[in-house]
Design a protein around this nucleic acid. Structure first.
Lengths: 216, 216
DNA sequence: TAGATTGTTAATCGATTAACAATC
DNA sequence: TAGATTGTTAATCGATTAACAATC
């Protein structure tokens, strides 16, 4: 079930989308779905969808398709949503607050256990009962709490230093929103979310879209 | 210079990163760089970097490499950063505010000209001198202002309806942060930023990383 | 059973890497 | 000139798509 070879990054990026659509299907009380119907929802081809699932052993049944709830749960397991990751956010600005307030993360096993901030004006405040602490309390805090994931929403100047500090404390993964590529040692997982790069790509695509409509 | 064939999405996603690193090189007063040095910075191979640039005609010089400032400017042009897009944000929650406060977007030609919100408690407030308006003022506002890009930071339930409304008003592109895949007609550009999917992918990668260290 | 749809192999397509002649 | 490094073609690699036998 959880046995599988190396999964390509292309597949990894599609798995969460399958999970999301299957969740929606469950909300709509849909019990089964074929790869063809799922292809209409997700925009991926039916063939690709079947290939993707077969990385993990295949959860379907010939002539029937996939049981929505079972597939949803399987994907949840594959994605590790049952693990329960202790998460901290470093940087309590708008972006940090936005993430702290996002309820869906808790539902999926990402438990927010602390928020750290340098600017004293946030001290003593809470977000959803989670206290905002001074960044210098980080090391002390981690003596009492195992931290699995650190979310970095600091300015770019601070990001690498913060990353080094949390890695020294045993954090396994970094979800980085600062516009730098965080460097981490082997074995540490980092996901760099570059909103500026997303916007610049959008800008390029606008130009391309115009070129297409003007020329042939 | 701006003449080029169809550029693959893989290339489009790398262009903003080149631009960012070249900006950093300029800040450090570095005048020239080879594809090899750039490969060490970005993590892409030198061969790939040269291939990427040659989609647009090649900006280098044999035996020398690339002029940093020239390449930076060329990439800026290719990305359309000289266009000056009028941008609005719909949804003034934490995420909308975070984006509204992000100075770098203005510097790159994304002019924020309005923020719209449904919840009356934000009415009358301003972010960086940009007024937060009632969502129902959207149509009137667009009579006086050409809007190029709409940033959607509403809850998911509202996102598609808002997208339809702004498209009806002539918006060319949508930068969507709601956790749904916005559907748009031909010719409209949409960039869906799915933070939850990013986090779920991170979760998967943590599991994989552990598997690697435990097994062989 | 007949029909539907998977799991899986083979074919195709596209992207990355390697190699090197051109040239600054 | 000699050395360095691009631009570009060819080779390789990997991901996607097509096809179909297996089977529910």
């Amino acid at each position: 079930m959880a046995k599988h070879g190396k999964v390509s990054m292309a597949v990894v990026r599609r798995l969460p989308k399958y999970h999301r659509y299957l969740g929606e299907l469950m909300e709509n009380d849909i019990k089964r779905i074929s790869s063809y119907e799922l292809s209409k929802l997700t925009g991926f081809t039916a063939s690709q969808i079947r290939q993707d699932f077969n990385n993990f052993g295949g959860f379907g049944q010939q002539g029937y398709g996939y049981n929505v709830e079972e597939l949803y749960n399987q994907l949840g397991n594959i994605l590790g949503l049952d693990k329960g990751y202790n998460t901290i956010i470093i940087g309590a600005g708008n972006l940090g607050q936005a993430i702290a307030n996002y309820r869906n993360f808790d539902n999926r096993g990402f438990r927010l256990i602390g928020i750290f901030e340098k600017n004293p004006r946030y001290m003593g405040l809470k977000i959803r009962d989670i206290p905002i602490m001074d960044i210098d309390e980080l090391e002390g805090f981690s003596k009492d709490h195992k931290v699995d994931i650190a979310v970095i929403t600091t300015p770019k100047e601070a990001a690498q230093e913060i990353a080094d500090r949390v890695i020294a404390l045993g954090v396994e993964a970094i979800w980085n929103f600062a516009p730098v590529d965080i460097k981490v040692p082997e074995g540490i997982v980092v996901e760099n979310v570059h909103l500026s790069e997303s916007l610049l790509a959008l800008s390029f695509l606008i130009k391309e879209s115009k070129r297409e409509s003007e020329n042939v």
